[in-house]
Design a protein around this nucleic acid. Sequence first.
RNA 1: GUCCUCAUAGCUCAACGGACAGAGCACAGGUUUCCUAAACCUGCGAUGUAAGUUCAAUUCUUACUGAGGACACCA
Length: 572
Amino acid sequence: MIKNKIIQNLKTALKKSGIKDDSLIDLQPPTNAQFGDYSTSVALKLTKLFKKNPMEIAEEIKKNFPKSEFVEKIEIVKPGFINFWVSNNNLLDFAQKINEDKFEFPSFHLGKNKKIMVEFAHPNTHKLFHIGHLRNISTGESIVRIFEAVGNKVIRTNYQGDIGLHIAKCLYGIRNSQSVIKKLNNLQERIEFIGKMYTEGTKAYDNPKAKEEINKINKMIYNQDPEILPLWQETKKWSLDYFDEVYKRVYSHFDRLYLESDVTKRGLEISKEIYKKGVLEKSQGAIVFNGKKYGLDIRVFINSLGFPTYEGKEMGLAEKEFYDFGELDKNIHVVTPEQTSFFKITFKVEELINEKKYKGKQYHLIYEWVKLKEGKMSSREGNIIEANWLIDQIKTKILERFKCDEKTAETLAVASAKYSFLKNSTQTIIHFDIDESIAVDGNSAPYIVYTYVRCQSVLRRHSGKAEGRVQNLNDDSGVAPLPRMTESESNLLRKLYQFPEVVLKSAEQYSPNFIATYLYELASQFNLFYQKNPILKAEKETKELRLLITQTTANVIKKGLELLGIKTVERM
RNA sequence: GUCCUCAUAGCUCAACGGACAGAGCACAGGUUUCCUAAACCUGCGAUGUAAGUUCAAUUCUUACUGAGGACACCA
């Protein structure tokens, strides 16, 4: 990487000035393209040490900076920034590689064995897969792909809740409407039915008599009571089948699906074991972890009825996850912020159980809520926006507005939904509005895909073929002549050049939104270029260069969207 | 009560301690004999308040104000 080479040379330059400590060296692409490809503020940081004007220090560093073919220009700008321009040859070399679809990303391994588990999606059976889950699965899927891109082995898991009070509430409703079940013809109807029953059960819970009954059902499920078991399993299967459909629709899959009921028993055992070891303690009839000495909360692991709580079950889950795929270097849990306290506690307890195995490995990747403008979604209120419903709405909108086939509309609808979540930082609460939040123009997936389609259209016309990439762009010359490169061409090449580092940054900060923003900026820059410069009608060498840029842009957009879990289309 | 997040343009969001704080929507205008106008251009507009650290603060620290969340038997 040229970035590392420049850093190395900066170190050399500092050594010549007698500075051995190179911890002050920084190098980043400046926000503004006029300041070059990389910039360092090291001269500013050295003012105290040198007791000299930063501009003078910068001059000295520039003077001592080893001559390098990959740097075209070094410029010093007030108050003391040193800016570097990557040489055109290097930019073109990079574009050539991408042109051939050869992507090389910097490595970013989260552990020596490079094995990362990403646990995401997390829907609960007997409930709808709503837009909150959609944000979760979009985020998780993207994180998986980004970590794979930077060289990790990633395991995809999904911990689905299929036991607990919410299930009992739903089954309570169903029990009173047994006769309806036979009339349900397809999955859609069954899911709607479950949803209705859940709402009914939740409302009934306010009634003391019903509450007692629901608690009884809950206990029966935990005890695997044969009276309730068949109904529980059948309705659970409906949910799981429905989730499978959703996963397929948004191009996600999992290496392992964990169910809460699978870890209940073992979770209880572990909780009892560690209670005996003194990690947990008894309090008011329950077994709890007292986190006070670690500055944490007190949380219940086994309730006074003897059932493991979510915390207790997590012990079973952790053991399984860290066993099923061998040792993990990182286990990333994509979960909302309300569970921060929960994770702090369970991570701490796991660490106390087995420090070597768990310490520093568990990570809670917080993604924020999707709130409706009218307030929080709640099954109780029945104001849940289901993921499928949302995608269908966007699809309808696209079909109404633009002339395209159903398949294209489907791809673009999924793309729009995912992108609208991913362009935000994971830690931003999204205030959802069906009309405003899912954009199909402006900073949106269709805008970026449209740019890709434009590129493809130009390339198709060039090659004269109906499909396929352009071959042999630089048949004779190999490299387009540099003097002909205009500023907009050079700027686009520089933007394209940033791609691998943007991916690295996304991985380092668990932030898909950096890639989303980058792709939008790239598309925007290309569209401006496209508007002002003819590609196919340009002079020979210029045309080759522009075709190279077009193909590279298309490839980067496609790859970038792929890392976001978004598919492109060839025409729209 | 204790703890944790967050506060940027009319609205929804960006910004690794750095260079003039970027977009989209909305609003007001403009651009198609030319590779897809799902595009492009112009204009309008913002860092809650008060201090501090720093060559440099939206970013770090403290206080205040406001919002959200967590804090024992839900998941």
